[in-house]
Structure formats: structure tokens, C-alpha cells
Design a protein around this nucleic acid. Structure first.
Lengths: 232, 232
DNA sequence: TGTACATCAGTGAACGCGCGTTCACTGATGTAC
DNA sequence: TGTACATCAGTGAACGCGCGTTCACTGATGTAC
């Protein structure tokens, strides 16, 4: 019967989720390289080979974790954005920044898995790339909304984007529609600036130097907004 | 005799260098987690335990590699800066940016070791922190030189640095003397922006999106210069 | 310059560990008639 | 509703591997008198 088939499948889905949960927890203690199928199986109370009923290899498990991570960060970003008035583009940008940071601080090893050094020997499959776009798309919509609302006023301090940039800009425009090359260039700076800050903060580069990180972060992201052309 | 003592010591120094060279090469193929004393020993034609004459543990070898890395990047930055006319502060900043990037592209795994996810289980000792400062000090001097030459004109688009930032700013001022909190905040943004860009580029975040990376990078760093208040 | 001794470099065997993955298997759960 | 069969989950043993680190040792290189 279809109800009993879903019974077995429900157990399967449940155990799959349990495996990824445990794996995620191990990631948080051992780091990406230390993720071991045997350790996960041990904690599941299973024999190590049983894991292979659920994931055909260690890399597939890693892939699942990466996709989950991108989705978690994407969801956090979407929620933060959705909670702001549509026309408050600066507020939306800042909300997104803080959402990414809060998530990163709560899940430092997952952040490292997504935005840190690539895991040696691991080749990211195509599925992860789609998941990675989720947060970026929200950011792109904020910028293009601001542009369409006429709220994006170039601060006029950057040199114009070079002609050689236009091909790459065209590709980025699929995520940030309608805006000029100049805006795309500045949007890229803000985006890399956000993650650059977080990587410094999470990977220890601020140790013994910056202590009130929330304050400095917030101010930095406001400056990025200003450079982007948003009202601050 | 002192000449014969230095003979033995010269061999020792030579072999120590050879070990770190091989380890560096392994780092470039296997990544930080895959660095193995046994593999290094094998390639040296030694038995694995012999390595312990030179490094008391795997972590000490890692520490040596990290310090070497920071020094290499620091030296590249120093040279790039020194090749510019002192009063061309914008040129000095751009030269530093390109020097860091060139080094990072030539040594991606070493870059990851220094600026990527921390190696799990490895606790960076104090020596590495001093070495890490070398490049930063050059950057700080450029900013403070520009300030002292009156070449640093605030673009006036950032909100003022919050009062809560002043304690951290004071700490940073030991590296960038004399400048205001506002300048320090903007200097921090440019610096994190540089490494944020490089991490995106090296860790794969630009894949399938940005292809002419040198062009986009150069333009981004010019924008950072402009935001910092340097003439562009 | 020659000898007695101390220091150091490198060997080889061993300890104890954990890993990913395969394979033939036992039972339990689901399906079709 | 009941039975015969197919699918799936989990077991347990094994393969083959590499790792960091310790230890007692042999020789060679350096030092002091």
C-alpha cells in the first residue's frame, strides 16, 4: 500500500536527516577534513558499512552538508530581507549582512566549509553551485530594486568600470538585472567586502586587534552601502 | 673548531630548508590537512623518525610553513611598496594589492593556510602572529604616509565611525599612526576587501561568473583607494 | 698532532590508532496475485 | 485475507592503507686536553 511504502520511506528520510545532523555536529568539532563516516556510524549505533545504504561515499555526505549549509544561509538571508520594508534598501542590505554574520558566528565550521579553503580532494558537483546562488540572488534583488526605485545614487568617487569588465558584468547582470557596469562593479566590492570581513573575523585575523566586532562590522557594512550608492 | 662546528650546522640548516621545501610542495598538492611527516621523510629518503631530529612534531613543521608564508607575502609586499615613489600613495596601495594577489595565485595552498579556514586541531603559536603583521605594517605605513602628506581626502560618504569603535581604533593606530577613527575604519574596509576578493577568487566563488579577474580586481582596488580617500 | 669522550644524525622495528570501502550474509518490511 | 516472492536495512568480518610518535641502537662528527 502507498501508506506503508511511505512508512519505510519515512524512516529512511528520518535516518538520513539524523546522519547529516550528526555529521554536521562532527564538522563543528573536527573540521571538514576530520569528517569520518565511521565516526558518524558509531554515533548512530550502526556498523560503519550501514551508512552506505544512505550515502554512497564520504564525498556525497559532504556534498549534502554543503548544500544544506548554502540553503540555511540562503534561508536566513531571505527571511532577513523579507522582514524589511521593500523600499528600505539600505535596511535590507544591512539586514542581509547581519543575517549572514549571525549565521556564520553560530556555525563557524559550516561557514568555513562554504567560504573557506576548499576541502582537499573534494570536487564540488553542480548541485552545490545552484544552492550557493540562493543568498546571492536576494542580494542582487536588493540592488536592482534600489536601482529601479531610483534610490541608487553613485557617490561618484570610483573610476568608471573598464571596458574589459563589460563581459563579466553582463554575466552578473543575470542576477542583478538592469544595472550599469559601474553599479555591478561596486556591488561586487560590497559583496566580497562582506565575506572578506567575516573570514577575517572567523579565521582569527582580528584576534588581539578588533574586539567590538559587531560595532565595527555594522559600520563597515554601512560604508559599503554608501559606496554602493544607497542612502545612509 | 668553530669552522667545523658551522660545517655540521650548515648541513643541518640545509636539510631543515629541504624539509620545509618538500613540505611546502606537499601542501600544494594535498592541502594543509594532508601534510604528513612520513610522506616528507619518504621523499627525503629518510626514515620517518629521522624528521624528529629537525622538527619535534607535525605542528611545529606547520608553524614553520606558516611563518615562512607570512614572511614571503610580507617580503613581496615590501618590495612592491619600495618600488614606488614615496609620494605616490595610490600607486603604492595598488602595488601592494597586486603583490598580494600575485603571490596568492602563485601559492594558492599557502594562501589558504594563512587566510583560509584554520587547520583543525592546530593552535597558532605567538610567533606566527608577529610574522603575520609584516605585510599589514607596510599597508599601515602607506595610509599614514598619505595622511601625513595631506593626500588623504575623505570622500565624505561614510557615516562617522561610532564612538564604540574608538577603543579598537586606538589599537589599530599602533600600526597606522596619527590617523582618525574614520580613516582607520575605512582602512580596515579596504584591507578586508582585498582579502575578501582574493578568497572569493581563490576558493572558487567566482567560478563561471568572473573570468577577467585581473581587470575586475584592479578596478575594485582602485575603488577601495577612492573610498579610503586616496586620489584615483 | 693524537687520543678519549661527548654529542648528534639517522636506522629500523614497533605501538596503537583510524580510515574508506567491499562483500556475502541474515532478517525484516513491502508487493502482487 | 493469505501466501510466495522481491526489495531493502543492517551485520560482521575483512582488505589494505597511512598516520604520528617512541625507543634502543649504531656510526659518524665534533670537542677538550
Amino acid at each position: 500500500m502507498s501508506s506503508s511504502r511511505t512508512a519505510r520511506e519515512r524512516v529512511r528520510a528520518e535516518l538520513t536527516r539524523e546522519i547529516t545532523d550528526i555529521a554536521r555536529r562532527h564538522l563543528a568539532t573536527e573540521g571538514a577534513g576530520g569528517l569520518s563516516l565511521r565516526a558518524v556510524a558509531r554515533e548512530m549505533g550502526m556498523v560503519s558499512s550501514a551508512i552506505y545504504r544512505y550515502f554512497p561515499s564520504r564525498d556525497e555526505l559532504l556534498t549534502a552538508l554543503i548544500i544544506d549549509g548554502y540553503n540555511a544561509i540562503g534561508e536566513a538571508v531571505e527571511n532577513a530581507d523579507a522582514a524589511c520594508p521593500r523600499e528600505d534598501h539600505t535596511g535590507r542590505w544591512l539586514a542581509v549582512c547581519h543575517a549572514v554574520r549571525d549565521w556564520a558566528l553560530a556555525h563557524p565550521h559550516e561557514y568555513a566549509l562554504l567560504y573557506g579553503s576548499p576541502v582537499p580532494g573534494y570536487k564540488a558537483p553542480q548541485d552545490t553551485i545552484a544552492a550557493a546562488a540562493r543568498g546571492t540572488i536576494v542580494y542582487g534583488r536588493i540592488v536592482s530594486d534600489a536601482h529601479q526605485a531610483g534610490a541608487l545614487n553613485s557617490p561618484g568617487i570610483c573610476p568608471p568600470a573598464p571596458a574589459a569588465f563589460s563581459e563579466d558584468a553582463a554575466r552578473v547582470r543575470t542576477i542583478v538585472p538592469d544595472v550599469s557596469d559601474d553599479v555591478i562593479a561596486r556591488a561586487l566590492i560590497a559583496w566580497t567586502g562582506l565575506f572578506g570581513w567575516l573570514s577575517f573575523e572567523l579565521f582569527g585575523q582580528f584576534n588581539n586587534v578588533i574586539f567590538d566586532r559587531t560595532t565595527a562590522f555594522d559600520h563597515s557594512m554601512r560604508c559599503h552601502a554608501a559606496m554602493l550608492g544607497l542612502p545612509v
